[in-house]
Write a protein that binds this DNA or RNA. Structure first.
Lengths: 154, 154
DNA sequence: ACTGGATCATTGAAAAAGTCAACGATTGAA
DNA sequence: TTCAATCGTTGACTTTTTCAATGATCCAGT
């Protein structure tokens, strides 16, 4: 584990070949760091970053997420969600609506413009995923996905 | 994707159950975030964090890594490695040695005390890993590891 | 109906992490 | 020998993370 997001993604064969690379936490961190660089590069074209894209995606999902739900699901502090939504709302991509049953909560919904941008960004990210997991067959990617889901939710 | 390390690891069943959770980048980020919290909590007992532990681990590996190699392998900026090693060196856990063939580089080696601390921390992290992947059989954990390794290095 | 404790979004401040450019020392190649 | 490149290091700067506090609102118990 303990991996940063430095852009330098050079490979270090000498270290990678060792038993160190058996640490799942470390592997997870490296795959994640590499994907993060790819995704953010692709999203830059749309003025998005991974975080704002994720929020936009949830806002487009029809799930009508509250800000608290976004914070929990994305493992972010509620105050970070505020900043993220402020920015997206300022660009007219999402809107805050009052909670259906609880007036404290605010539901985050995408605007038409937000949905359009999301569709474009989604396509770009699809390409990133293909690139990142190029070494795996599609069956293996499905297997990886299933293992990760079971890790999280049994 | 786009996940932080907020300590709040609450589950959000409503969002998790949706198609959103098919995004591998997002799954990776969530698993990583959850593991990070667990690991850092366990490492706190030893005055370590994920990063310093990783450096210590490599220093204990017998691979005699240079600071540049550490930076590349851990995807960190070289200046961050300096700070990490300064701290570990100040605590007498690692030492800098001149590079064998290149006097510009510095090799990072663990001291006896560093090796002892590493052994303890390693055991604690082993328990974290068991906890995090409790829903998976050991065969499945191996499968996950293999998939991640192939993703990174073919 | 009323109160007390909890939760929600929000703000602001402080700490940590990440980014970037520059420097002296050293290397390797022309 | 000279010149560009690399290594570790420093320092400045921005971004991200973390945390406490606040007003509005909800809810359980009375």
């Amino acid at each position: 584990m303990s991996i940063g997001h430095s852009v330098e993604a050079a490979d270090t064969p000498r270290l990678a070949a060792s038993a160190i690379a058996d640490d799942i936490g470390l592997l997870l961190a490296k795959v994640r760091a590499a994907g993060s660089v790819l995704n953010n590069r692709a999203l830059a074209d749309f003025g998005l970053r991974e975080r704002s894209y994720s929020v936009l995606r949830l806002a487009c999902s029809g799930l009508e997420p509250t800000q608290r739900e976004l914070a929990d699901f994305l493992s972010l502090d509620p105050s970070q969600i505020v900043a993220l939504i402020d920015e997206l709302e300022g660009r007219g991509l999402v809107a805050r609506e009052q909670g259906r049953t609880d007036r404290r909560q605010k539901i985050v919904l995408a605007t038409r413009a937000g949905e359009r941008l999301h569709a474009q960004a989604e396509a770009a990210l699809k390409a990133c995923e293909s690139e990142q997991f190029a070494a795996l067959s599609s069956a293996e990617v499905n297997s990886l996905r299933a293992l990760l889901q079971r890790t999280l939710w049994g």
